[in-house]
Each structure stands twice: as structure tokens, then as C-alpha cells.
Computed example of a mutant assay.
Amino acid sequence: MDPRGRVFGGQVYAQSIMAAIRTVEPERAIHSTHGYFLRPGDATQPITFSVDRIHDGRSFSTRRTQAYQNGVPILSMIASFQDDDPGLEHQVQAPEGVTPPEDLPSAAEVLGPIDHPVAQFWATSRAFDIRHVQQPIYLRADPHRIPRQALWMKTIGPMPDDDNLHRAALAYASDYSILEPVLRGHGLEWTHRGLKMASLDHAMWWHRPMRVDEWLLYVQESPTASGGRGLSTGQIFTREGVLVASIAQEGMVRVPELRE
């Protein structure tokens, strides 16, 4: 369990997706979600999920999932599903010349030697192997102050041959690092004294099938930060350069010396 006692937002998001999936015909795959994190989740308390069947059309279905703890919602999400439908096809190109994951250290290798409960949790208890292409900013800021980064990720172990599980697991992992470009752009690291961050919302679009137990390249950028909030966008590619998902998230980012 997270030593800070909070539920990881990506977990609640992925569980809300799976709850919605179970109310939709199996031939309709989830293709987009838009959700708001309303309250911090308590890792010691159960979570209840409620799904509203908003619409079922000839090609699309819409569901609303609410995640509750202690009788109040901690997340509210709308999800859209679609039958497999042929149509126009194009995508942006994946970045070239990216260092392969085999040549990069894992989070376990970077954080494992650090005797701190949060560092040990990130090093040993995450379901995904995450490897930053640039220097990680767990402990040290990025001196270049460029609000962009890329990382490789895949599950620690193999996953079943279930496309729904892979899509939900990708949503889970998409929340790990999406706000890091905001910190990079301002020369901040996760351990900056007094830094407070929290996801406010999360939007995701699945474009093509993928496997989360194979290496995926997550390219992220922050176009703006203001008002104590930062916005980040991301694109996820397979190792072969196929664009499989796009993400956008706004988060609260409070730096104590800027609020005095």
C-alpha cells in the first residue's frame, strides 16, 4: 500500500473503466474517457462503483461511472464505446533515435538503493517497469528546463489475451508520470520541499489495439501552466511506431515559495 495512504488515481480510473466495460456489449471497445478526480481516495477503505447506462446507439455506447468512498464520489467519468468500424487512417510519426529500454535503468534500479518508504514503494510495488529516456526527476531537477520527456513502460509480468484488460491497464499507467513535464519545465523535482501535486482531470483516447506487457513509448509535453495548475498531453506508441493512445491531464501544482 502507498505509504502516504492514498489510492493511486490511475487505479481508480482503470477500475472505473472496467466497471463500465462490464455493462457494454463485448464487441464494442472503449475508445475515449473523460474523468474528474473529485476527492483523494483512502487506500484503507473500499471503493464502490456505480455505472449509468447513458446511451446505446447503433454504433456507439456511452456510460457514466462514479467511484464512491464513504458515500461520496471520489471520481466521476464518462466513457464512450464503439463497434469496430473501418474508416480513414493516419497518425503522427513516433520520435526517432530514442534510446531503447534495454539501455535505460528501471525505476527499481534508480530508487532501490534509497532508504525511504515512498522511494521503496515506487521501486518495488508498481505494476509497471518504467524507464525514463531523460534523467528521471525523482530526486534531481532537469537543468535544461524543457517541458517534454519520454519514457518506456510495460507491465512487470505477462497479461492475459484480453483487449479490455490491456486498455484499462494502459489507462492505469498513463497517470503515473503525465505531470512530470510541468516540473521539468520549471526545474523542479518530485522531492522539492513543500511541493503539492494532484490530478484534477484525465482524458484518454484509444486509437488502436496494443499489449501493455510489451514495451510502449510514452511521449509527454506540457504546453502551459498557470493559476496553480499545469496541463500535460501525451502520446503512446508501440515499439514499431504505431500510435495507440493519446492522453491529456490537468493537475494542481503548488510550489510553496510562489505562494508566499
Rank of each mutant, 00 (worst) to 15 (best):
M1Q: 11
D2I: 06
R6S: 08
G9K: 02
G10N: 02
Q11A: 08
A14H: 00
Q15R: 01
S16K: 01
M18T: 06
M18A: 03
I21S: 00
I21Y: 00
T23R: 00
E27P: 03
R28P: 02
A29L: 13
H31W: 03
S32I: 02
T33G: 09
G35C: 06
F37Y: 09
G41E: 00
D42A: 08
A43I: 04
I47P: 02
F49S: 02
F49C: 00
S50G: 08
V51E: 00
R58I: 00
S61M: 00
T65G: 07
T65S: 07
Q66D: 13
A67F: 06
A67S: 06
Y68W: 01
N70W: 08
P73Y: 04
M77R: 07
I78Y: 09
S80K: 01
Q82V: 02
D83M: 11
P86H: 02
H90S: 11
Q91Y: 02
V92A: 11
A94C: 06
E96L: 12
G97E: 11
E102C: 05
D103S: 12
D103A: 15
P105G: 03
A107W: 13
V110L: 10
G112I: 07
P113L: 07
V118S: 09
A119R: 05
W122D: 14
R126A: 04
R126S: 07
A127Q: 10
F128S: 06
V133H: 05
V133F: 09
Q134K: 10
Q134D: 15
Q135D: 12
Y138M: 12
Y138L: 06
D142L: 02
I146A: 15
R148S: 13
Q149V: 11
A150C: 07
L151M: 08
L151R: 06
T155N: 10
I156Q: 15
G157Y: 08
D162R: 11
L165Y: 11
H166L: 06
H166K: 07
A171C: 15
Y172H: 14
A173D: 08
A173L: 06
Y176Q: 07
I178R: 09
L179R: 12
L183K: 14
R184H: 10
G187A: 10
L188N: 15
L188Q: 12
W190S: 11
H192F: 11
R193M: 11
R193P: 14
G194I: 13
K196N: 12
A198D: 14
L200I: 15
L200C: 15
L200Y: 15
D201P: 13
D201N: 15
W206S: 02
R208Y: 03
P209C: 11
P209E: 13
M210K: 10
V212K: 03
V212P: 02
D213C: 09
E214N: 04
W215C: 07
Y218K: 01
E221Q: 09
S226F: 14
G227L: 03
G227D: 08
G230L: 09
L231R: 07
I236L: 03
I236W: 04
I236V: 09
F237C: 08
R239C: 05
V242P: 05
S246N: 03
A248K: 11
E250K: 15
M252E: 13
R254I: 09
R254P: 10
V255C: 05
P256N: 04
